[in-house]
Every structure is written in C-alpha cells, then in structure tokens.
Amino acid sequence: MKPVLSHPVRLADLPQRKSTHVRLVPDAGQLESLADRLGVDQFRKVRMDLELSPGPGRDWTLTGTLGATVVQPCRVTTDPVTTRIDDTVTRRYAADYDIPREEEVEMPEDDSIEPLPALLDLGDVLEEALALAIPDFPRAEGAEDIDLTATPAGAEPLTDDAVKPFAGLAELRAKMERDED
C-alpha cells in the first residue's frame, strides 16, 4: 500500500560521506488521510525530522524525531482525547541482512535492523512510526474504569482472586504451618 505522504529516496544516490537531512510535514489533506488510515479522529499536526547517515560499509542509519498531535476517542467515555506525541525514530538498514525463511524465528535483540532497500520511502517510515506511537487506549482526564461484569441470574460474579488458581495457596500453607506448631 502506498503511503499517504510518499517521499522515496534512493540511498545509492545520496552523498556517501555525509548525512542527508529530510523534514516531512503532511499538508491538511494528507493529515486527514493519515487519520483515516490509522483509525483516529484527527491529526492536528505531524512533523518528522530525519537524518540518513551512510556507513559502516554499505549500511545506512536513519535517526530522527517524530512530533504529532492526535485526537482520538476516550476508550471509556468516547470524549475526544488530545495526545502530544514526541518520539525518536531509529532504523538501521543493513546490506548483508538475511531475511529468515523459517516459519518460527527468534526475535533479534535489535529490532531496528532491516534489509537495505533499493528505494526507501520515508512516508512509510513516518506512517509506521505514527502507528507505533499512537496510544492504544487513550483516556479522558477523570474517566473512571467501567465495571464490565456479566453473570447469569443467581450466579456469583467472578472476582480477580477467584480466577487465580494459586491465590489461596499461601494462606493454606500458613494455616498448615500454624497447625504443626
């Protein structure tokens, strides 16, 4: 899927001895499209400042900052919640990165390493960073938790303690030790 704000960069065409700076600022229409795509009510503003640095070898490093203001509904009251996002972005593009082919693989310790692309779309990086930074469960100030207990008529509702199978073992052990004394 093509990013809302497409900004393709061919890393081989960039200077190989110095960093390249890029600033991405979506216009009003792109902000609206980003909000639709990422499932939020509105982005008031979004800005990403990036630096692409060559090396070591044929590898590249992308570092930058993401700033955004997002409006989304509170998960408790559905009132609009405005959140300020200030996040750092880091990606390393490795020329010798091998994509695992097995069905199950261990996650690497450094999850910022990716294969070196022939063409890097910085719009994709922006959308991915935004998607990761948006709060999953925004809450309006003063919103209280909702008690979502459902039980059949005449039954006792389950409590947190009741669904923990080993919750009473410590008490039972203490009682048994008291009985031995």
Results as ranks from 00 to 15, higher is better:
79 D>T: 03
132 L>R: 04
143 A>E: 08
129 A>V: 06
130 L>E: 00
87 D>F: 03
165 P>G: 05
1 M>Y: 07
91 R>N: 09
102 E>K: 06
129 A>E: 10
158 L>F: 14
54 P>W: 04
150 A>R: 14
19 S>D: 15
91 R>K: 12
46 V>N: 00
79 D>I: 03
174 A>I: 02
29 G>L: 03
172 L>T: 04
145 D>K: 10
44 R>M: 03
128 E>K: 06
116 L>F: 05
92 R>D: 07
45 K>C: 00
14 L>E: 05
14 L>H: 07
9 V>M: 14
95 A>F: 12
82 T>A: 01
166 F>L: 11
161 D>I: 01
47 R>P: 01
30 Q>I: 02
148 L>F: 12
119 L>W: 06
143 A>M: 07
134 I>L: 11
34 L>Q: 01
60 W>S: 02
66 L>N: 02
112 S>R: 08
36 D>N: 13
131 A>V: 04
179 D>L: 15
72 Q>T: 09
6 S>V: 02
180 E>P: 06
166 F>A: 05
11 L>C: 15
124 D>W: 04
154 G>D: 10
178 R>P: 01
11 L>H: 06
49 D>K: 14
11 L>R: 00
111 D>Y: 05
98 D>G: 02
59 D>I: 08
90 T>D: 08
109 E>V: 07
134 I>P: 13
149 T>Q: 13
162 A>D: 14
131 A>D: 12
48 M>C: 02
46 V>A: 03
154 G>V: 07
78 T>S: 08
65 T>I: 04
172 L>F: 13
177 E>K: 14
107 M>I: 11
62 L>Y: 02
46 V>Q: 02
13 D>Y: 11
127 E>S: 04
167 A>K: 13
165 P>Q: 08
127 E>Y: 03
177 E>Q: 14
146 I>E: 10
66 L>K: 00
88 T>Q: 14
42 Q>L: 14
81 V>T: 07
167 A>N: 11
82 T>N: 01
146 I>H: 09
39 G>F: 06
23 R>V: 15
23 R>E: 08
165 P>T: 05
54 P>E: 01
7 H>M: 09
33 S>G: 04
19 S>T: 13
25 V>H: 00
149 T>H: 10
135 P>K: 07
69 T>M: 03
162 A>F: 04
161 D>C: 03
140 A>P: 06
175 K>F: 10
145 D>A: 12
114 E>W: 05
87 D>P: 05
83 T>F: 14
172 L>S: 12
59 D>K: 12
15 P>M: 11
169 L>R: 04
24 L>H: 00
